[in-house]
């Protein structure tokens, strides 16, 4: 039996139980979000034994060396003394300035930060409700002088956070958020490189931010192909805006893909990733962005690589629901 020491208390971890679950089961206050190692909300530090390697995935080398770990991934075989970090200052304040329906189940939420903020389009932040419920969302705009952040919030039927956004959050209400994280973003310096953007559902959010960044901020000259996939046409929630962009920028191309029944010729039947990678069988020299369902991301990453793209030039953001 493994013992976890937290503060002055000891807790017994059950078999295969994560440190986070042990602490939560004992009613300890620990911040957490995705519970899958992505949002890094539950970052903790071991004060004695080194944490298991898999609980340090995605942390910086310097953090790994100091025995930082993600409590939600940490099934320890050794006793550990663990502590939370002093990260009270890591939350930033913002105010809701817009809430618009993009489709029947996707809301555009815009917030305005109280102070200037640094982020790169395509990164994500954690949004926090004042009772501590935290969720990660991709930023769907590029940086602007108004310190605004836009998100595409998909309303899940039993979503604790998303239902609250839909039903209770109103303009003017405060909302706190974390510093932007993630490396799925536009990289300046290769202006002529062709870009392949593939997204399903609200995986379109980071891609839209990246697209705006590439087209308007960086004046990207290479071809940009965006494939957005949904089951039915109602999920193609940015269709009009994207078509308008194709008219404004001749190097931008948009393909709307429907995996369900297709009645309209303007939509391509099939899965967005399959169609994209069939259309471009040779991805050598391309930069590829994949955002959406984890399975699609994993599958497409492999395909894009085998078809020629360099691993370093494949950027992925798997969405968890």
């Amino acid at each position: 039996m493994t013992r976890i020491k937290f503060g002055e208390q000891f807790f017994e971890a059950e078999n295969n139980e994560t440190v986070l679950n042990t602490l939560l089961r004992n009613n300890m206050q620990v911040p957490y979000g995705c519970k899958t190692g992505v949002c890094q909300c539950c970052l903790m530090r071991s004060l004695d034994n080194a944490p298991p390697e898999k609980s340090q995935v995605g942390l910086k080398d310097t953090q790994q060396k100091q025995n930082y770990f993600l409590a939600c991934l940490c099934e320890s075989e050794d006793d550990m003394t663990v502590a939370l970090l002093n990260n009270e200052t890591s939350w930033l304040d913002a105010e809701v300035i817009e809430k618009t329906d993009l489709s029947t189940n996707v809301i555009l939420l815009k917030i305005k930060a109280k102070e200037p903020l640094a982020f790169i389009a395509g990164q994500f932040v954690n949004l926090r409700r004042n009772d501590g419920v935290i969720r990660s969302y991709s930023i769907a705009n590029s940086p602007n002088s108004e310190h605004e952040l836009a998100f595409h919030i998909r309303i899940l039927p039993n979503g604790k956070f998303s239902r609250w956004v839909a039903d209770e959050l109103t303009i003017g209400m405060p909302l706190s958020f974390s510093h932007a994280q993630g490396d799925c973003h536009y990289v300046a310096g290769q202006n002529e490189q062709p870009l392949l953007l593939i997204g399903t559902g609200t995986g379109l959010a980071p891609l839209y931010g990246i697209l705006l960044d590439a087209l308007s901020t960086h004046n990207h000259q290479g071809e940009i192909h965006l494939f957005h996939g949904s089951r039915d046409a109602s999920g193609l929630y940015l269709e009009e805006k994207l078509i308008a962009l194709t008219q404004k920028y001749s190097n931008f191309h948009y393909t709307a893909c429907l995996s369900g029944e297709v009645h309209d010729k303007k939509y391509t039947p099939g899965r967005a990733n399959d169609i994209a990678l069939q259309n471009f069988p040779n991805t050598t020299g391309w930069r590829v962005y994949l955002c959406g369902q984890p399975e699609m991301v994993l599958h497409s990453k492999r395909a894009a690589y085998l078809q020629g793209a360099s691993l370093k030039e494949i950027y992925a953001d798997a969405f968890l629901s």
Partner: peptide, 10 residues
Amino acid sequence: VDIFYRKVLA
């Protein structure tokens, strides 16, 4: 590494 790993996977 990019070329090698691609060959291996394929």
